[in-house]
Amino acid sequence: MQVDDTDRRILRQVLAEPSAARADLADRAGVTAATFGRRMERLREAGVVRAVQAVVDWRALGFAVEVSLRFTLDKTNPRAFDEFIAAAREVPEVVAIETFLGRVDVRLNVIARDMAHYQEVYRARILSLPHIAEVDALMLIATIKDSEGLPL
């Protein structure tokens, strides 16, 4: 799909304020509401826009601790990745799972209410995940930039 300047203007407005009214977004992008609707539908059908979603601030809900855990798996079992990921999906405090090519195989982002809760989750749920060869923890101190935006 070819994305033109009008599509880019629309995408910039949706990224800037996804919860704004459709008419307001259209006006800011310099198009009519009907054009905005048609263009957004086309962008969705082409897979350019997958969803307009809410972003939850975990800290506002009382989760003050976020830890990124990096795992190297014991790959002697050919199902190690699949079994590890399936088990990690069952841990409610795991909010992101990413796989990598390199020394680190998988990264889990884990949230907890406080350090005592994190320690409980780590000992009871994380260390019991299958096929762990090595684990390294990085505690989040501050998020400097967290943007879904693109240079459109």
Score class of each variant (00 low, 15 high):
M1I: 03
Q2P: 09
Q2A: 14
Q2G: 12
Q2F: 15
V3M: 15
T6F: 11
D7L: 11
R8V: 11
R8N: 08
R9S: 13
I10K: 02
Q13T: 10
V14Q: 10
V14M: 12
V14I: 15
L15G: 10
A16Q: 10
P18Q: 06
A20T: 07
A20Q: 11
A21T: 09
A21G: 14
R22V: 07
A23G: 08
D24W: 06
A26M: 09
A29Y: 10
A29P: 06
A29V: 11
G30S: 11
T32Q: 09
A34K: 10
T35R: 09
F36N: 10
E41Q: 11
R44K: 14
A46C: 10
A46P: 13
A46S: 15
A46R: 14
G47L: 06
V48E: 05
V49A: 02
V49R: 02
R50F: 06
A51C: 03
A51R: 07
V52F: 05
V52L: 12
A54P: 03
V55S: 09
V55G: 05
V56I: 13
V56D: 06
D57Q: 04
W58S: 03
R59G: 02
R59C: 01
A60P: 00
G62L: 07
G62Y: 07
V67L: 08
V67C: 05
V67P: 00
R70N: 08
T72C: 04
T72D: 03
D74P: 13
K75H: 09
N77M: 03
F81T: 04
F81N: 05
D82R: 14
E83T: 13
E83A: 14
F84S: 01
I85C: 05
A86H: 13
A86L: 13
A87P: 00
A87T: 02
A87R: 00
A88K: 05
R89A: 13
E90C: 13
V91E: 12
V91D: 12
V91N: 12
P92R: 15
P92M: 15
E93M: 14
V94I: 14
V94A: 09
V94C: 06
V95K: 13
V95L: 14
A96D: 15
A96K: 15
F100R: 10
F100E: 01
R103N: 13
D105Y: 13
R107T: 15
R107K: 15
R107L: 11
L108E: 08
L108H: 09
R113P: 07
D114V: 11
M115H: 09
A116E: 11
H117N: 06
H117R: 06
H117M: 03
Y118Q: 00
E120I: 00
E120G: 02
V121R: 04
V121Q: 04
Y122G: 00
R123H: 07
R123T: 11
A124R: 14
R125I: 00
I126P: 01
L127Y: 01
S128R: 10
S128A: 08
S128C: 04
P130S: 02
P130R: 01
H131Q: 02
H131S: 02
I132N: 02
I132L: 03
A133W: 00
E134A: 03
E134R: 02
E134N: 04
L138R: 06
L138Y: 05
L138S: 07
M139T: 06
L140K: 08
L140G: 00
A142T: 04
A142V: 02
T143G: 03
T143R: 12
I144L: 07
I144S: 04
I144D: 08
I144N: 05
K145A: 01
S147Y: 00
E148D: 02
G149V: 01
L150T: 04
